[in-house]
Amino acid sequence: MLKHRFGWIALVAAIAMLVYWGTVAMTPRALMHLVMGRLEQNAPVNAMGHAPLSTAERRVIVRPSPDLAYSTCLFDLTDAPLEIVIEPIGSPYWSLSVFDAATNVAFVRNDREANGQPVRIALVGEGQSVPDAIETVRVSSNRGLAVLRILVPERGSFDAIDIDRRNARCAPLN
C-alpha cells in the first residue's frame, strides 16, 4: 500500500516540477511576445518609434512612468545586423536598454556613461559581423526590443526633448 502511494506522490511531484520548469522557462518569452505585439503599433520592425507621453488613458504597457518619454525599436536580426544611434538629448537623464526575446538585458547605456557623445551600437545575431569601428552587442536571439527612456522633468519641456529624441535611429546595418 505504501509503495502504491509513493508512486502517486512521485508522479504528482514530477508533473509539478515539469509545470514549474515550463512556466519559469516560457513566461519571459510569452511576456516579451505580448509587449512586442503591443509596441508594433508604434513603428515597424527595425525602425525607431516615438510614443507620446503616457497618460492614464493612453498606456501601451502596464504602468509606464508619466515623467518618461519612451522610444522603442523592435528588432529582427534574421537578415542583417542592426545599428542603433542615440544622439545627445537635452534632458537631465536618458538611458538605452536592449533586451533579447527572453527579456534578458543585452546592453545598457545612459547619458552619464555616454559623456555627451552619441551612442552608436550594432546589434548582432548568430554568425553576423560588423566593422570594428562600431561597438558590437551580441544578442542571444534574433528578435528583441531596444527601449530609449528619457526623463521629462516638466510637461512643458517635452516639445524640445521630443525634437532631440526623434534624432534617435534604428535601422539595418548595410
Rank of each mutant, 00 (worst) to 15 (best):
P64N: 12
I84K: 00
L96D: 01
A56E: 08
N104E: 09
I86M: 01
A102E: 12
E87N: 08
H50P: 05
S54C: 04
T103D: 10
V105N: 10
A80W: 06
P64V: 02
L96E: 03
T55L: 05
V85S: 10
L96T: 06
H50L: 12
G90K: 14
A80K: 14
L82A: 08
P64T: 12
M48I: 11
D100Y: 08
A101R: 07
P64G: 03
P81N: 07
C73P: 09
V98F: 00
P64S: 09
E87H: 08
P81H: 09
S54W: 00
A101Q: 06
S91N: 10
V85G: 02
S91Q: 07
P92T: 13
I61Q: 03
R58T: 14
L82R: 06
R59K: 15
R59P: 05
V98E: 05
V98A: 10
V105R: 14
S65I: 09
Y70N: 04
T78Q: 15
P88V: 01
L68Y: 05
L74S: 00
T78M: 06
V62P: 00
Y70T: 13
A56P: 07
P88D: 06
A69F: 00
E87P: 04
T78V: 03
P81I: 05
A102C: 02
A56F: 03
M48K: 02
S91V: 02
V98S: 07
I86W: 01
